[in-house]
């Protein structure tokens, strides 16, 4: 793949995109997991699919070229994020209800737009399960911009995000503008999902945000370590998944998630053996 990477720009773009999403998905995923919002990624990814399907439909019917399906996916994801956050504040006692509402609406709209755009084709397949050859240079720039934005916001608002994730009441009392940061956070989540879909696909994007974190939590000793280990696990999964996906000619989303799950299983087992050895010894 490395030889091919040097000669094919699209493949190179895919690899760079993989490195970027392998960083930002687990980075944001750490906050998502500790805030117990893991399912939000699923809700948002399906709304993003609706946006992509809408983009494909518009391209097909009206040859709308300025906005690609990738762009409409991002717009839908941001819209979905704002809807989820509003539903969560309306249904304070049943906050998780926001997820099935947006998820089913996303799937519903996807079905309609996919059908209108003449059904499942290779484009849709690539968006569902990821693809090794789907990233244009302009898409790469959008993903690069998203990554820089997300990393910058997390560095700048790290303490605020951390305090809000641990104890919202205390954070609010300390003068943190909780509502504003919640909106910013969920919009960032939408952007990261839209960016990651190029590589892992709609159906598996939440796995890239949660599996590396689930692994890291078992071995990390602090929150900062959890973030660092999540990113390492995420990058290992993405790089090996992309390379094996390329050689086996299968969508990389599947291989990435299987490798991430394998890392989780191996870590859990290693920890179990380590402890039984430590206590026996």
């Amino acid at each position: 793949m490395l030889d091919a990477m040097l000669s094919f720009e699209l493949l190179r773009n895919t690899f760079y995109t993989g490195l970027l999403v392998g960083l930002i998905a687990p980075l944001l995923g750490t906050f998502i997991v500790v805030r117990r919002l893991s399912l939000i990624a699923d809700g948002l990814s399906h709304v993003t699919l609706a946006g992509i399907a809408f983009g494909l439909f518009m391209q097909k019917k009206y040859t709308l070229l300025f906005f690609t399906p990738f762009h409409t996916g991002i717009f839908f994801a941001i819209g979905g994020a704002i809807v989820i956050e509003n539903l969560r504040s309306i249904y304070k006692a049943f906050q998780e209800i926001a997820i099935p509402i947006t998820l089913s609406l996303g799937v519903g709209m996807s079905v309609v737009f996919i059908a209108l755009a003449d059904g499942i084709n290779t484009d849709i397949f690539a968006y569902l399960f990821g693809s090794v050859a789907a990233v244009s240079r302009s898409d790469l720039y959008v993903i690069l911009f998203t990554s820089v934005f997300v990393i910058f916001v997390i560095i700048f608002l790290y303490k605020e995000l951390f305090a809000l994730s641990f104890d919202e009441e205390f954070a609010t009392v300390s003068g943190i503008r909780a509502k504003l940061i919640h909106y910013l956070f969920i919009v960032m989540t939408a952007l990261v999902i839209a960016a990651s879909i190029r590589i892992v696909g709609v159906l598996l994007v939440s796995a890239l945000m949660t599996l590396p974190v689930a692994t890291a939590i078992r071995v990390a000793k602090s929150f900062k370590q959890t973030i660092l280990y999540s990113i390492i696990y995420g990058e290992v999964a993405v790089i090996t998944g992309l390379i094996s996906g390329y050689y086996l000619e299968i969508p990389p989303g599947g291989t990435i998630v299987i490798i991430a799950a394998f890392l989780l299983g191996a870590t859990l087992l290693a920890k179990k053996f380590y402890f039984s050895y430590k206590y026996k010894g």
Partner: peptide, 19 residues
């Protein structure tokens, strides 16, 4: 609070410094 939250005592105290 969520007892599984991966934060050290030091990190928790640091949250008090947000303002």
């Amino acid at each position: 609070f969520n007892r599984g939250f991966p934060a050290t005592a030091k990190e928790v105290v640091g949250m008090g410094l947000t303002s």
